[in-house]
């Protein structure tokens, strides 16, 4: 019920925005090249704050969480949830590590050999690191450029991914601002990013990149 409502609201907003006369023709979609977007966000700041809202059909309340995201130079990202409970995930091209609230490595899901989780973590990595060209392999990508920014609409073409993800929307301007996953069963995860600048948090997250 919640899901439908959110989608409906989003749709209404979109329709509404088209009727507001504005200086730029915001509603004329301009298809654009992926690498031009990638160029725009190459200035993606390394450290972000994120807020996540998960709307899950089987739960009466949505799950809210927040934390930090660090994009490291060597194609690795550190994803740290601070609330409701601290946990850290480090994703690299061939690695996937998780740490608990005491920053101890959890050995449980060593599923790097599982084809699906491998595909999904590499998709996640491609999106966060702005490596959009990679996405073409497993997704139909529609890129839209507007004066205010850009957005990508990804629909999976790979059966293994389809089992988990229906589609993904990414939008932003000089950096990724919003990421929405719609899972196969209709559950939606919305993540918004805000760039921050904190030496302290940067250093804290950076520790997870040291092997």
């Amino acid at each position: 019920m919640m899901t439908t409502l959110t989608q409906y609201t989003a749709f209404l907003l979109l329709i509404a925005s088209c009727f507001i006369p504005s200086t730029a023709n915001a509603c004329v979609d301009t298809p654009c090249e992926l690498n031009s977007i990638a160029k725009q966000i190459s200035s993606q700041p390394q450290l972000n704050e994120f807020k996540q809202l998960k709307t899950v059909a089987v739960l009466t309340q949505p799950l809210k969480s927040s934390g930090y995201l660090l994009l490291a130079d060597n194609d690795r990202v550190v994803w740290q949830t601070q609330k409701p409970i601290k946990s850290t995930t480090v994703i690299g091209p061939n690695s996937f590590k998780q740490y608990n609230k005491q920053d101890e490595a959890i050995s449980a899901p060593a599923n790097s050999n599982n084809q699906t989780s491998q595909l999904i973590s590499s998709t996640f990595l491609s999106i966060l690191s702005g490596d959009f060209e990679e996405l073409n392999t497993n997704f139909d990508v529609i890129a839209i450029c507007k004066s205010s920014g850009w957005s990508l609409n990804l629909t999976s073409t790979h059966s293994d991914i389809q089992r988990v993800i229906k589609h993904i929307e990414v939008s932003g301007n000089t950096s990724i601002q919003r990421l929405t996953f719609t899972e196969a069963n209709g559950d939606i995860t919305q993540i918004t990013f805000d760039t921050i600048d904190s030496q302290e948090i940067h250093a804290q997250l950076g520790q997870f990149l040291v092997d």
Partner: peptide, 21 residues
Amino acid sequence: EPFTDYTIQMAYSPLSSQLIQ
């Protein structure tokens, strides 16, 4: 406790609806 912590961590990760069920 380590188990519930892990459950929370998994539940709040982006693609977890199957586990949440």
